[in-house]
Amino acid sequence: MLTRSFPRLATLRYPLVLAVALMATACGKGTESTAPAASTPAASTAATPTDTAATPAAATAPAQTRQPGPIVPPQGPAPVLGTDYEEIPGGQPWQPEPGKVEVVEVFGYICPACAAFAPTVEPWHMKLPADVNFHYVAAPFGPEWIPYAKAYYASEQLGLVDKTHMALIDAIHVKKTLPGEGDPVNEQKIADFYGQYGANPKQFLDMMQSFAVSTKINQGRQFMQKSGVTGTPTIIIDGKYRITGGKSYQDVLRIADHLIAMERAAMAGTPAAAPAAAPAAPATGTGG
């Protein structure tokens, strides 16, 4: 089972009714993991974010096209190191590109919190400035997660992510036409789903079992371990910062905007505002 490292959400163990999980927009942690090299983290006790309207129902929206927006100053207070985000010792970007700031969302298709976050993060990343690259990394936390992680990387190779990402979330969490948490794994059903978007189901299923996809699964697992990811969804900025705070999904993206701006300034060699530090604990000594 996974914990959160994102907006400090309560962990759900999935015997809970999914409808309740979605109404609460609580984080969907991984199942009891049987994947190689994946540990079983402890449960999170953090609070649930306040985005009560951000449910997967919005996943029915049509596919969007990336339209980079202008660079604008981040809004709201600067994030606090140790409260809103953590530095990743020795962290590395997922797919570095010179002159680009990288944003990664580690997610799982069967994770209810990822489904609730999707309608907020999807339009946000479609409008990120041209000097920012956004990537998904699919978490292979357990036997019910791995087929969807394989499907994500296969769809990425075929250029189908923009067409299918939100639709797949909708099929799992709203229409319930694809297996979700606690359901038997059915890779043929997943391949048939992608067949609706131009893939050949048999070839897609073969691609899911391919060496290339297996390699991406292992690379994703290694990236997550090096980045300290123990739950989904988790946002990583340039391989350096893992967002751990935020009172809502929008607030998580406020933190991301600030960290992107901080990285942009560092790349340009221009002074940037120093990140805020958590307030020191008050002294308890009486003095003499």
Rank of each mutant, 00 (worst) to 15 (best):
A42V: 14
P179R: 11
P201T: 08
P119H: 14
P143E: 05
C114Q: 02
A35S: 13
Q222H: 09
D238Q: 09
I146G: 01
M267E: 14
E263R: 04
G180I: 07
A139G: 12
M267I: 10
P275N: 00
A276D: 03
A42K: 14
T55G: 05
T52E: 13
V106N: 00
L178V: 03
E181K: 08
A26L: 11
A281E: 11
T244D: 10
A35T: 15
P143W: 07
D206L: 03
S210L: 03
N218H: 15
K127C: 11
G245T: 02
A63Q: 09
I236K: 00
T11W: 06
Q67I: 08
G76W: 03
N200T: 06
K100S: 03
P179A: 04
S248N: 03
G228N: 01
R4P: 09
I235F: 10
K150V: 08
Q75G: 09
Q209Y: 12
L168Q: 05
A151N: 02
D257T: 12
N186S: 03
A256C: 12
C111E: 00
E156P: 03
P89A: 08
D192S: 10
S5Y: 12
G269T: 07
A138Q: 08
S44I: 00
M224L: 12
T45W: 14
V106L: 05
M207I: 07
G195H: 11
R8P: 09
P77T: 00
L81D: 13
V20T: 13
E181F: 15
Y14H: 06
S39Y: 08
T25F: 13
F204Q: 01
E97I: 06
S39E: 08
R8E: 11
A272R: 14
E263F: 10
A265R: 05
P233Y: 15
T177F: 11
D238Y: 06
S5T: 10
E263G: 00
T31Q: 14
V72S: 11
G142S: 11
Y136R: 07
P98M: 06
L168R: 05
D84R: 07
K226P: 01
V20N: 13
L168D: 06
Q209K: 15
E122Y: 13
A261H: 06
I260F: 01
Q203N: 11
T40N: 15
T65N: 06
K176V: 00
K202L: 12
C114F: 10
V185S: 04
A21W: 01
V101S: 08
T230F: 13
A151I: 04
T270Y: 01
